[in-house]
């Protein structure tokens, strides 16, 4: 049974994952005609959203993997047990910033 912290963590992960996939698709680090500075910025943006998507996907997948019989601590790639308050706060903060940006843009 998921408690409030896990539910917030999962929902925040879903929002961050959705936005990260959208932002990642808009980055064009290999586009023709970019200056060195623009290309560097595009690569940094792509790397940032790549890792945000990966981490958010882990948050979304963790309870699913636990329910599918993967024991917690069975793999070094994911920690499946209950998220800590710090992890939830970071992810929730990102999600609120994303929602704020979307509301601002209309």
């Amino acid at each position: 049974m998921m408690d409030a912290l896990q539910i917030i963590h999962w929902l925040a992960g879903f929002v961050v994952l959705a936005e990260a996939l959208n932002k990642a698709e808009r980055t064009c680090p290999l586009a023709v005609g970019l200056s060195a500075h623009e290309r560097l910025l595009a690569w940094l943006k792509a790397v940032a959203w790549f890792f945000l998507a990966l981490g958010a996907a882990g948050a979304v997948a963790a309870p699913v993997l636990l329910a599918m019989g993967v024991p917690s601590g069975a793999t070094h790639l994911l920690r499946l047990e209950r998220p800590t308050l710090a992890e939830t706060a970071v992810l929730f903060g990102f999600a609120v910033l994303i929602v704020r940006t979307r509301v601002k843009e209309g």
Partner: peptide, 8 residues
């Protein structure tokens, strides 16, 4: 993810 970023 890399395919979404680089290959659209």
């Amino acid at each position: 993810l890399v395919a979404i970023i680089l290959l659209n």
